[in-house]
Amino acid sequence: MLRVGLTGGIGSGKSTVSARLREHGAVVIDYDVLAREAVEVGSPALARIRERFGDDVIADDGSLDRPALGALVFSDDAARRDLEAITHPAIRDLARAREEQAIGADVVLHDHPLLVEMGMAQGCDVVVVVDVPPEVQVERLVRDRGMSEDEARARLAAQADRDDRRAAADVVLDNSGSVADLESAVDRLWSDLLARVHA
């Protein structure tokens, strides 16, 4: 089994790469999904979040009010670190369980926006970074996700530095071109990954 870490800044096109690799046959462990599972109603992590951040981050149905929590942590580094200390271990445990279930898979893809920040790149056989210039990220977040320019820049500032991500990469996929260009690059990447599996 080849453990592949996939990461990229918000708005980089990482989801497009992940979907294409899934089509080719990779077993995808989606950390955005795990992050939601880790804080489901009744989870220990959600109880700790409520204890640390108060009832204002809990919705009427008892679930996590993500926008309210996001507003707190994206403008306060200490608050973000406190949140990460709660959620990251729970996410790691879920990921480990998912990987154990992927018996017989050639490629297990850890689709993880915080692969570098959480120190998980070292545990992967191959690290793939989807890369675009920051100005392109901001433009896409404003256009596609309805963020203000300030919100978009705050999100970028909360993630790993572009140079840090690139330094951790074995493969850098440039996504400053078209979707078709990116998909062609992913197809070539898949061939390379399979070659490693069967070497």
Score class of each variant (00 low, 15 high):
Asp56Val: 15
Phe53His: 03
Leu64Met: 10
Arg92Val: 13
Met120Leu: 14
Val197Thr: 14
Gly25Pro: 11
Asp32Gln: 03
Val136Asn: 02
Leu21Lys: 13
Ile58Asn: 04
Asp65Asn: 14
Gln137Thr: 09
Arg153Glu: 06
Glu117Thr: 05
Val4Met: 11
Ala95Asp: 05
Pro89Met: 06
Ala71Asp: 14
Lys14Met: 03
Leu114Asn: 01
Ala79His: 07
Gly54Thr: 02
Phe74His: 11
Asp77Ala: 14
Gly8Trp: 06
Ala38Trp: 04
Arg153Pro: 06
Leu94Phe: 03
Arg81Pro: 04
Val197Leu: 12
Asp164Tyr: 04
Ala38Gly: 03
Pro67Ser: 08
Arg145His: 03
Ala199Val: 15
Gly54Ile: 01
Ala47Asn: 07
Ile10Asp: 06
Val179Asn: 00
Pro89Glu: 06
Asp30Trp: 01
Ala168Asp: 13
Arg162Ala: 13
Ile29Trp: 01
Asp30Ser: 00
Asp170Glu: 12
Val130Asn: 02
Val171Asp: 09
Val57Cys: 00
Arg98Gln: 12
Pro113Gly: 02
Leu194Ala: 04
Leu94Ser: 03
Asp164His: 12
Arg96Phe: 08
Leu194Ile: 10
Asp77Phe: 01
Ala168Cys: 14
Val108Asp: 07
Asn175Met: 05
Val4Ala: 08
Ala97Arg: 13
Ala199Phe: 13
Ala158Tyr: 04
Ile49Arg: 01
Val132Gln: 03
Arg143Leu: 09
Leu46Trp: 01
Pro67His: 08
Gly146Phe: 10
Met147Cys: 08
Pro133Ala: 15
Leu194Gln: 11
Leu69Val: 08
Pro44Thr: 03
Ser18Tyr: 08
Arg188Gly: 13
Gly8Ala: 05
Met1Lys: 04
Ala47Gly: 06
Ala95Cys: 08
Ala79Asp: 02
Asp32Asn: 06
Ser75Trp: 02
Leu114Phe: 06
Glu135Asp: 15
Val171Ala: 11
Gly119Ser: 01
Glu117Trp: 10
Glu100His: 12
Leu173Thr: 01
Val126Gly: 05
Ser18Ala: 14
Asp93Lys: 10
Ala19Arg: 15
His198Ile: 08
Ala160Leu: 05
Asp161Tyr: 07
Leu141Gly: 00
Pro134Glu: 15
Val108Asn: 03
Asp61Glu: 12
Arg155Cys: 04
Val41Asp: 05
Arg143Ala: 14
Val127Asn: 05
Val17Gly: 02
Val28Tyr: 08
Leu182Tyr: 05
Asp76Gly: 00
Ala169Ser: 13
Arg48Phe: 01
Arg155Ser: 12
Ser148His: 09
Arg92Tyr: 00
Ala157Thr: 06
His88Asn: 01
His110Lys: 10
Phe53Tyr: 09
Asp131His: 13
Leu156Thr: 12
Asp65Thr: 14
Pro113Lys: 07
Pro44Asn: 10
Arg20His: 07
Val17Pro: 00
Val132Glu: 00
Leu6Pro: 10
Gly5Lys: 06
Phe53Trp: 05
Ala26Phe: 04
Ala157Tyr: 00
Ile10Cys: 05
Asp125Asn: 12
Asp161Glu: 13
His88Pro: 01
Asp174Leu: 10
Ala95Ser: 11
Gly119Tyr: 10
Leu189Gly: 09
Leu94His: 02
Val108Trp: 02
Arg165Phe: 03
Asp76Thr: 09
Val116Glu: 04
Ala45Gln: 10
Arg143Cys: 07
Ala59Val: 08
Val197Asn: 12
Met118Cys: 04
